[in-house]
Amino acid sequence: MQLTRTSKVLLTAFAVVAFSFVYIPLGVILINSFSVNKSLAWPPRGFTTEWWGRAIDNEGVREALLTSVVLGLLATAVALVLGTLTAFALGRFTFFGRESISLLVILPIALPGIVTGIALNNVFTSFLGGLTFLTLVVAHGTFCIVIVYNNALARIRRMGRSLEEASADLGARGWTTFRRVTFPMMRSALIAGAVLAFGLSFDEIIVTTFTAGPGITTLPIWIYQNLFRPNQAPVVNVVAAVLVLISILPVYVAQKLSGSESERGGGLI
């Protein structure tokens, strides 16, 4: 497409403004994590690595990080198994109620987190004997499944049946076909789905607030609780900066994998 000079300049300006809004605050957090200021004031009066040391030594941060990682891994594992199975069921077979089920699977991602949170909280406390770490895993599983399911289903559709038929035709039984053909073809989509699901679970705060058992603090909740405490702001900055750096990795990996080779959809170019 050819653009006139004016529209090029305008579009560039818009792009710069939009990117600035997203990325300058992230940069500020990163810089602030080295600032000698004790509050979130700008500009920094000097630079220090003291907060990084304190954050690393902070037991609350370490525990919250561990909780978040374990929670994310468990929720992702649940989502991988259930999401993949659902994707195969809905992508490969036609049966009564198929469309409704596919809607029900996707719905949790669209529901407001606060609704999901309250609903799950009610069920857990009224019928299932209260909140624990397990209820938190289940709660995160509900929206992590959607991510895995979507990735898996897209791949199943694109893959078609002829590769598996070719494998069977060449003498491979069901399990061999799955191991040698289906799974390798699915693998990158599953990894991408898992990474995104983990990321989603890792920074979730609303549903977590309603479904975490007593005394369980995930990293986002720890940040929220400590943000306005005196003397904790610099440490929160460090934690946030680390999260930014860590989140770049899974997004990059997911984009690379889901858009690999000739089958690029969107994502990184």
Binding site: E165, A166, D169, V181, E261
Partner: peptide, 20 residues
Amino acid sequence: MPPYARDVNTVFQDYALFPH
């Protein structure tokens, strides 16, 4: 009999080569 038990082989219209 399932396909894997039959002594026939197929050349598919889209070739169905394993891309990986």
